[in-house]
Design a protein around this nucleic acid. Structure first.
Lengths: 143, 143
DNA sequence: GTAGGTGCAAATCGTTTGCAGTACA
DNA sequence: TGTACTGCAAACGATTTGCACCTAC
């Protein structure tokens, strides 16, 4: 079950944020795409239909959505963040180093390791980042 | 067993790189510190003793050392890389979100998961990024 | 009506690059 | 000696901020 545009809009309002046309457009772009999008990607997408929307607004909207965990942030190794619609269950990513494709996987529960580390290091673990890089099936075949 | 300044210098020469005073200084700064250092950290450290060393040189030296896997790169969530002397075995990090302290751990073998993902997704897995964030023991006590 | 949101432009941050001079092997 | 290295300054891309205007509630 993915979050819908309506669901996100409702969540925004519920948290006291205003639902502006610009935010609707950004949310629409994210929910419409299965891919991870960078702020610049979203800007390009929405700029055709709504030329007056600013990149700044996109950054600010993404920041809010990420803080409410409505979208999910990806730090693909190097520079540049990207975002996709948040899945209810926590998931991780595999990124193709050749074509940039991102595949999600959720079939892994990291909490036992968290508990172990917490015991061993005294850290109160708050979050984690688990990402794989590699070459996807298509890129391997083309090589 | 951590790599020593001498060991790194030898490895550099062995790979055909020249051993310049600037590189010695950068290597010295990294081996002398138990912490993960950003390029800017290293610059500040060495700039006192060697005011004529440039930030550019530090970036270029770090790039070489990382490519030879003599140092280990850390992508702490947000922006900014940092580096520490490379441990022979692969290891991962826990980063304190409060004070920025970094603790290494290596007591975890991720290869079974890699194999599983490779089977399920068709990816040829090349590398991974596993980092935890949390609050370290000291910061928890101070809070 | 008003607090919050927007958009522009400029500032900022971390990083990279062009180039002329320098120094290690 | 010659190639690799250095340092400066400028370019660069991504992100942020200041500020005046605007609009959803």
């Amino acid at each position: 079950m993915r979050l819908t545009e309506k669901g996100i809009a409702a969540a925004l309002k519920h948290h006291g944020y205003k639902l502006t046309p610009q935010r609707r457009v950004v949310i629409g772009a994210i929910t419409a795409s299965p891919d991870h999008l960078t702020p610049a990607d979203i800007y390009r997408k929405v700029h055709k239909e709504h030329p007056n929307i600013g990149l700044t607004t996109i950054y600010r909207t993404l920041e809010i959505l990420a803080s409410l965990e409505l979208i999910c942030e990806l730090h693909a190794g190097g520079s540049g963040r990207s975002y996709t619609i948040g899945a209810p269950e926590h998931h991780h990513h595999i990124i193709c180093s050749s074509c940039g494709a991102v595949v999600d996987f959720s079939s892994y529960d990291i909490s036992p390791l968290e508990a172990k580390l917490s015991r061993e290091t005294g850290f109160e673990i708050e979050g984690h980042l688990l990402e794989f890089t590699g070459r996807c099936r298509r890129c391997r075949q083309n090589a």
